[in-house]
Every structure is written in structure tokens, then in C-alpha cells.
Simulated assay, not measured.
Amino acid sequence: MMPRIALALAAVSLALSSPAAMAQSEKSGVERLYVLNCGEGTAGDISRWTPGLNEGKTMDFVDSCYLIKHAKGWFLWDTGIADAVAAMPNGLVPADPKAVTWKRPKTLAAQLEQLGLKPDDVKAMAVSHTHPDHTGNVELFPQAMLYVQKAEYDWPGANNEPRFKPSHPVELLTGDKDVFGDGSVTILSTPGHTPGHQSLLVKLPKTGAVVLSGDAVHFKDNWDNRRVPGMNVNKDQTAASMQKIADTLGKEKGQLWINHDKAQRDSQKLAPEFYD
């Protein structure tokens, strides 16, 4: 009798240690990552982002949002230019002609609907920072828990206005945050562009690790040359945050997805296609 029990236990042990079972136990909680079109525009003068270079040169920008399907629910990273801009024939024209004139070819709401989702389905969200090309649709999700660095939340807005509605549920962070507790989605504190800027590390089962830059860097040439835009609030913090991202990419053997880089975005699969 005993040998049979021993054999049965050995069989169970072998099954649990098989490559398929081990892969299942190690599987990331992230199931899919969607890249959403959250704005397209043209910068009037990119020397704002490359001090001392490119004076008077224009550049096309994009604005991406990212929707993550995790075993525990839907998580949205950044919300892009306000959906209302889609109805503006000339786009959102900035007061500063050197800045970006934004257009909204597709609304965020329509892209969610295409995936069979309603805004209420998004249970948690975070924004890289509080500039309007990243927070334009935060209040489309009034029920979603918003993760934001305390330094960003406390940073006075125009006319000292709060940066979010006081009624919006929020968790204030003072550093990195493992969103789901399984290491698959980690908010990285990367200040410099703004006082509480943050980036996002996502670990996908097949694609591997991806860091979503926010505006820690605006386009690949700036990343390659570690250039700091003139409008950033802190140059030293920006440089340190770029190094933190580089260290993370090295450790995780990851890719950097740069939010505003059009050439990179044009090479990516856009929703309803996805990365897994």
C-alpha cells in the first residue's frame, strides 16, 4: 500500500514540477497590453525639447495611452488629450506657437467601446504626470482608483487650482508602487519633467518587460543623447530618472516605449490589436 501512495505522490510532484506547470505558476498577471491613439500633433519648434539645437524646426508628435488587462482587472495608463478635441476642426491650438497643436483622430471612449468596454470597467488608473495631454480624460473614469505621486498631487496648478477633482478616489504615492502585488505592473517614480512624474514597468508573458516612459523622455534622439528639455522642473532629477529607467531596462532586459515618439508608435500594433 505504501509504495502506491509514494508513487502517487511522486507523480503529483513530477506534474507540478513539469515545464508547463512551472511556466503557469510563473506566468505574469498581465494578459494583454493595448496601445491607444490618444492624440496626434505637430510641435512648432522642437528646440523647446532640445535646448541649443533644432531652432525653428517642427516635428510630428503622437500621444499614446495604454490599457492593461490584468487577471485582477483593467488598468489604464495615461488618458491623453481630452476627447472633446476630436470635435475641433483645427485641433487644440496652444497659446505658445512653439508648443504642440494637438488633434484627436479617435476618442478614448470610442476605442474602449471597440474593445467591448465601458469606462466603468476600468477599476484602476495612473497618469505619468499632470500635463493636459496626459490627463485630458481622467474624469471619464470617476470611479477608478487613481495612482499619483504625492509631489505631483500637491503641485499647484494654474491659479493654484487642484490638479484633480477632490472627489476622485486617489492613492498618493511616495515612490515606486507594485500595483497588483505580483510584480507584473510597477509604477516607477521618475521625477524631473514635473515634481512627481512617474513611468510604468509592465511585464508581459510573451513580449517581456516594457517601460512606458511618460515624459521622462519625449523622443528617441533625446533618450540616446540624454537631453533634458528646457521646460522640465529639475534637470538633475531628470538625468537621474533616465538612469533609473536605463538600469531597469538592463535588469529586466526590457524595451523602452516612448510616449510621444511618432516613428516608434508607427511601428507598433494599435488597439484592437494587442501585445501579450
Rank of each mutant, 00 (worst) to 15 (best):
D261L: 03
F61C: 04
A71F: 04
P51S: 08
F75C: 14
R226T: 10
I68R: 09
K150T: 14
K27T: 12
A6H: 12
F219G: 09
W49P: 00
K69L: 15
P169Q: 00
Y275V: 04
H197W: 02
E273R: 12
Q243Y: 01
P162H: 01
Y147R: 09
A11C: 14
R226L: 06
V228R: 04
K150N: 13
L200Y: 01
S167V: 11
T174W: 02
D276Q: 15
Q149E: 07
I46A: 05
S47A: 12
V210S: 03
L76K: 12
R4W: 06
M1F: 12
Q24M: 10
G250I: 01
R48T: 12
E252W: 04
N234T: 05
K165Q: 14
V127A: 08
P191D: 03
P272D: 06
A84C: 09
H218C: 13
G73Y: 04
H134G: 06
K118S: 15
G116I: 11
V122H: 12
N222Q: 15
S17Y: 11
L92G: 06
K244R: 12
V217R: 00
N160R: 13
H197M: 13
M242C: 00
H218N: 12
P169N: 00
N37Y: 06
T207M: 08
Q237S: 05
L172M: 11
A15G: 12
L9P: 05
A209W: 00
A10H: 06
G250H: 00
A82D: 13
R227L: 15
V62S: 14
L270S: 10
G91M: 09
H197P: 02
S189Q: 09
D154M: 04
V170S: 07
G136P: 06
V179L: 06
F61R: 08
K123R: 14
N234C: 08
G157P: 06
K150A: 15
A86N: 11
A126T: 14
Y66D: 10
A124R: 13
I245A: 00
Y147L: 12
W155C: 05
S64P: 01
L172A: 05
V210K: 07
R32A: 06
S167T: 15
L76C: 06
V179T: 13
K69N: 12
P195A: 10
V185Y: 11
V217E: 06
Q268G: 08
A23M: 08
I46M: 11
V202D: 01
H218F: 15
A209H: 02
L36F: 08
G73N: 03
E252L: 00
K262Q: 10
M59W: 08
